[in-house]
Amino acid sequence: MYQKSKFPEPPTDDKRWHSVQVVMRKHGRSPHALIESLHAVQDAFGYLDRDALTYVARSLDVPLSKAYGVATFYQYFTLKPPGQHKCVVCTGTACYIKGMTELLDALKEKYGVNVEQTTEDGTLTLQSACCIGTCGLAPIATVDGEDLGKVSKEELLAKLEEVLHGHS
């Protein structure tokens, strides 16, 4: 007969699983902690793969289908590994008016990526945000968490070059 072990082992020996375990333990391994736990996995690894979903689902005693459902429902979670660097362009109303489409076009032209895509060499992921909440600084983009407010396409490309190749 199949018996579920009480606390499943993490899929790998990676130390980053420790932070995930801490979060799950903090919430008493309750099924309600599913989103918090997935946040922990994504913070540690950058994305959610099948092994991670299976591990979290088994630890919290929820069906894998539910974990998958939650992971695909929320825009924040991603199932694909991200590139080394991340560029987020805000596509909210204010940024749209201030010309964010030009930024996206320029990025596509230079790096060949659309929104939610990663460059072939895996160095850059382009994402969009519905609104990052600083409409006074529209159009805004973030590169690896650093905000670039009132940014022109030249400034954005220069910043990306600096990040990707270490020079401006």
């Binding site: 099924p31 309600h32 599913l34 989103i35 918090e36 946040h39 939650v70 825009q75 979670f77």
Partner: peptide, 25 residues
């Protein structure tokens, strides 16, 4: 504290409760 995960609909109260419970909003 419960952290959302980028779903606009979760501002709606029944969706918000579902999300707090760890489900789809």
């Amino acid at each position: 504290l419960r952290l959302g995960a980028g779903a606009y609909v979760c501002g709606e109260e029944t969706a918000l409760i579902a999300s707090i419970e760890g489900g789809r909003g």
